[in-house]
Amino acid sequence: MNKHFKILPFVFLTAFIILFGCDSSEDNVSGSQIDTSTPILNDLDIWLRSNFVSPYNIDIQYKWDVNDTSVNRYLHPPYPANAEKIAQVLLDVWIEPYNIVGGENFIKNIAPREFVLAGGFNYNPGVPTITLGIAEAGARITLFNLDELDFSTIAYESDIIGDDDDFDVQRSVVGPISTVHHEYGHILNQNIPYNPAFDVINPGNYTAQWFNRTNEEARSLGYITNYASNQSSEDFVEMIAQMLIRSRAQWDDLIDNIGVFDPGTQSYELDTAGERIINTEAINIIRQKEQIVVEYFAQDYGIDLYELQALAHQALLDSVD
């Protein structure tokens, strides 16, 4: 008993310490201090939310955020009117054709979650090139030079070698939509890789100095554009982009007339009748690539690429002002 009596004060003291030792601070949990209120929305913002965010979970970022682009480039936001025009083109020429051939959930399932729009050209420092678009991790596509576009024009490169007017393509609707087809091709490839047989069709002339080639020279080497001769992954998506901006007849006409090109004189070689000598080797290479691309869409996505081509081209024609 005496022994228990002695322990009792210690028990009380310990209980006191445990109960009151950490008592002086009070919890002060209140509501969130982060501002989650809806930002000011203008008519364009509301339209974009209705047509891109709600149905496709795609955000069209036309308002400037310095974190969306490289801080080392001199870029500016586009005029909102041009942002609206390109958004409509994206709906009609990119989303709708894919939805028709791939099912209404195709773009909902596989799409970049964000488009970033910039008004001016994105010049690459130290080299005579500009960046037309960027695809980042399948999540974001950035499009440049929207304020330089003529939305009433569809332009294709001329048949004149090295024609300066070929840049008109990038000032027409064809410029950004081919960029979207190109970058979306990368996103499809990130979901399902393409057949590696594509990489070994003609790897010998891939070069980082692709910009020193004209499109005509690249085609005579078996690449659909000069940028396609950069590396095989770009080659693959350039095939997609160049097919989808043309009708099948235009595409066949482009491929079947690839000539034998003399890099020394930067001209096509002509036969005795003065006609362009057709480069059957280059044509065969590009047709092999075309077959792999068509099989990729058919087998991996259940899409008839030629049907998609017809829809995308018609939508492109319909899109001009």
């Binding site: 036309y62 308002k63 400037w64 955020d65 310095v66 480039r73 001199y74 870029l75 500016h76 936001p77 586009p78 005029y79 909102p80 008004g119 001016g120 050209f121 994105n122 010049y123 304020d147």
Partner: peptide, 14 residues
């Protein structure tokens, strides 16, 4: 941040 184009964004026009 000047979020859409106006006079001052000419400063970033390349």
């Amino acid at each position: 941040v000047f979020t859409t184009r106006n006079h001052i964004t000419e400063g970033t026009n390349p």
